[in-house]
Write a protein that binds this DNA or RNA. Structure first.
Length: 105
DNA sequence: AAACTGACTTCTC
DNA sequence: GGAGAAGCCAGTT
């Protein structure tokens, strides 16, 4: 594959859209699913670019430890509240991955 | 084409 | 578990 059909961004967006409500996925997880394990940073850029927050639930994407990282629509505070409303288990300021991490399988 | 940046991850202390 | 440093990937300038 010398010329990828779509940019990594497009792949990440497609995956983010597949995240079910009440669940959260880590950047590394999406990166791996996108076809490039380790590209967690690149995934972050895609979320920041987030062209459509309505179709791309970027707020369901958290760091590997469950800590909420940036949010281009109000900050991590809003992001946290959103996840709680969706039914995601929370441990203080971090999401409880053990109970709410998304499993594409 | 090269260098820099960034919503990350992992290792070690 | 927390703080600091190094490494990786894709995109942007």
């Amino acid at each position: 594959m010398t010329t990828p059909p779509q940019t990594f961004q497009q792949k990440v967006y497609a995956l983010a859209k597949q995240i079910p409500k009440g669940k959260v996925a880590t950047y590394g997880q999406l990166a791996k699913m996108a076809g490039s394990p380790g590209a967690s940073r690149a995934v972050g850029m895609c979320m920041k670019n987030n062209p459509d927050a309505k179709t791309i639930p970027c707020h369901r994407v958290v760091s590997s430890t469950g800590a909420l990282t940036g949010y281009a629509f109000g900050g991590t505070s809003v992001k946290k509240e959103k996840l709680i409303k969706e039914g995601v288990a929370f441990s203080g300021d971090k999401a409880n991955l053990t109970l709410s991490q998304w499993q594409s399988n």
